[in-house]
Structures are given as structure tokens and as C-alpha cells.
């Protein structure tokens, strides 16, 4: 009985932190640029495939350092792609109705899908966890793979670093000023366009990092982008659109929903998840965890 409970909580945390890794970059870009980037899931997926390609040099026996290097390579590659997307898409659509930006990123997600199909094909690919993380831990009747613990820790570390940067550093204060009033920030001498660029780069690098860190967490297929972007959207919506802390809490909340759903409604994956999101939107359209607007 205790084992079941631990398993549910553990599964909830795996789902939560895997999703938070993807949602972190999405919510960062949304919070600062107010662009809801559909293609984020696509670049997360490509990050995974890049890491897969790097790791395929090691065969089945992957050392932990190589796994981490692959994640960093994916992260750098996606950060670089972020520069291209910022220049070609976000900057060009700055003065257009937000709806068109959304459509553009939606199209970009499809392009990512197409690129993956073209380069890596339609088949499922998989990477085994690093050799140091193949063990399992037994805890009160539950079986906890060490790799899954690694995924959970990765999510927590990324959250702590982001939270520190956003709330405790001068860069974070600048970001918060820009998020609230970019025009005023420009007036007081902040180079808004350069901050936007670095935000996009960071967001994309986070997508790549998530792809690399999670490459052994699930198999790779062109469906990965769609699955994760919807989970991440759920987290961003419930977390109050654009708040990293909100996204972190929301991912744990939705992770619990998902784990309970997997245990008690195994035949209908996702139904409880979407129902919860719908409920949150009905009760509090501004998100479960957002502070009430004062104006």
C-alpha cells in the first residue's frame, strides 16, 4: 500500500520535472516577450534527436559525462537556432497582430516535425540511460530507477537556477521590468531588443537541454513535439502564463493528476489531464496560481 503511494508520487514527480524542463523555456519566453511559442516543443524534440546522434557514437554503454555533454551540445545547437528564429520570425512579426505570431510558431512546429522525419525518419529511436544510472533503489516496496531520480533532480536544479537568476540578480530585475513595460524599459536605457534576443536564446537553449537530458526518458519519435508541447502548455496555463515558479508548482500538480490518471484510468491517458485544464480555465481563466491583477 505504501509502495503504491510512493510509486504514484514518484511517477508524478518524473512527469512533473520532465514537463517542467520543457515548460521552463516556454514560460520564460512567454513571460518576457509575450509570445506563446508553439515551436518550443519542436525544438525540444530536435534537441533530443541531436543528443541521440551524439550518443550513438558510444553504442549501448554511455558514460554519464558523455550523456551530459550530449545535452549541452543539444542545448547550444538549439540556442543557436534560437538566434535564427528570433531574427527570421519574432523580430519580423513584432508589429503584427499576436494571432499571426502564433500561427507562425505553429507552422514552425510543423516544420520541426518535417525536419525530424526527413533526417531521422519515422521509426522510434531510443537511448539507454548512462551506465552509472542503470540501478534501481527499493523504497518501501516501490522500485525507483536511479535515472528517473536524475530526471527529477535535473528539473529541480533548472528551477532553482532560473529562480535565482530571475529573482536575485540584476539581470533578473531587468527582465522583470521589460516584462511589465518594454517601452518604459527602453526609455530608461535598457537595450530591449538585445534582452529579447538573449531571452529567446535562453528559452531555446532550455528546450535543447530538456531534449538532451530527457533523451533516455522516453523513446524518440516525431510525435514527441506534439505530446510535450501540450503538456507544457497545460503547465503554463495552470501556472498563470509566464511565471516560472507558477509553472514549477503547476507541473507538480498536473504530474499528480497524470499519475493518478495513469493508475486509476489507464485506458484513457490524458483525459483527466485535459479535463483538469478545462476546469482550471473555467474557474480561473487567468491561471490557478497567478496573482490577481491589480489594475
Amino acid at each position: 500500500m505504501a509502495g503504491d503511494l510512493i510509486t504514484i508520487l514518484f511517477n508524478a514527480m518524473i512527469w512533473a520535472m520532465a514537463t517542467f524542463l520543457v515548460a521552463s523555456g516556454l514560460t520564460l519566453v512567454f513571460g518576457i516577450l509575450h509570445v506563446l511559442n508553439f515551436s518550443h516543443g519542436g525544438f525540444f524534440m530536435i534537441g533530443g534527436y541531436v543528443a541521440y546522434t551524439v550518443l550513438s557514437m558510444f553504442g549501448a554503454d554511455i558514460p554519464l559525462w558523455a550523456y551530459l555533454v550530449a545535452a549541452i551540445v543539444a542545448s547550444v545547437a538549439m540556442g543557436g537556432t534560437g538566434v535564427a528564429v528570433d531574427t527570421l520570425v519574432f523580430r519580423r512579426l513584432k508589429s503584427v497582430d499576436g494571432v499571426y505570431v502564433l500561427i507562425a510558431t505553429y507552422a514552425l512546429l510543423l516544420v520541426c516535425d518535417g525536419v525530424v522525419k526527413l533526417i531521422w525518419g519515422l521509426n522510434y529511436l531510443s537511448v539507454s540511460p548512462p551506465r552509472e544510472l542503470l540501478d534501481v533503489i527499493f523504497l518501501g516496496g516501490a522500485i525507483l530507477p536511479t535515472f528517473s531520480i536524475f530526471v527529477i533532480l535535473s528539473g529541480v536544479v533548472v528551477f532553482l537556477v532560473l529562480d535565482y537568476v530571475l529573482n536575485r540578480t540584476s539581470a533578473g530585475r531587468i527582465l522583470q521590468v521589460i516584462a511589465i513595460d518594454p517601452w518604459m524599459a527602453g526609455v530608461v536605457g535598457i537595450n530591449v531588443s538585445s534582452v529579447y534576443r538573449w531571452t529567446v536564446i535562453t528559452g531555446f537553449a532550455l528546450a535543447g537541454l530538456a531534449g538532451g537530458l530527457l533523451v533516455a526518458n522516453q523513446s524518440l519519435s516525431p510525435d514527441l513535439a506534439g505530446i510535450f508541447i501540450l503538456q507544457a502548455f497545460g503547465v503554463v496555463i495552470v501556472g498563470g502564463m509566464g511565471s516560472v515558479r507558477g509553472a514549477f508548482v503547476a507541473s507538480i500538480f498536473l504530474g499528480l493528476v497524470e499519475a493518478l490518471s495513469a493508475t486509476y484510468l489507464p485506458n484513457y491517458p490524458g483525459v483527466l489531464f485535459f479535463a483538469t485544464i478545462a476546469l482550471v480555465l473555467i474557474v480561473r481563466p487567468e491561471g490557478l496560481l497567478s496573482r490577481q491583477a491589480t489594475t
Partner: peptide
């Protein structure tokens, strides 16, 4: 074969960016 996503996505992106 297999470029339909690329075609649809790329075309949509191109239209939004250059011929709105």
C-alpha cells in the same frame, strides 16, 4: 515522400512572413 509536413509548415511560415 515524407515532406508533406515540411511543405505545409514551410509554406504557411513563408506566407505569414512575406505575404500576409
Amino acid at each position: 515522400i515524407g515532406i508533406s509536413d515540411l511543405l505545409v509548415g514551410g509554406l504557411l511560415l513563408a506566407v505569414v512572413l512575406s505575404v500576409p
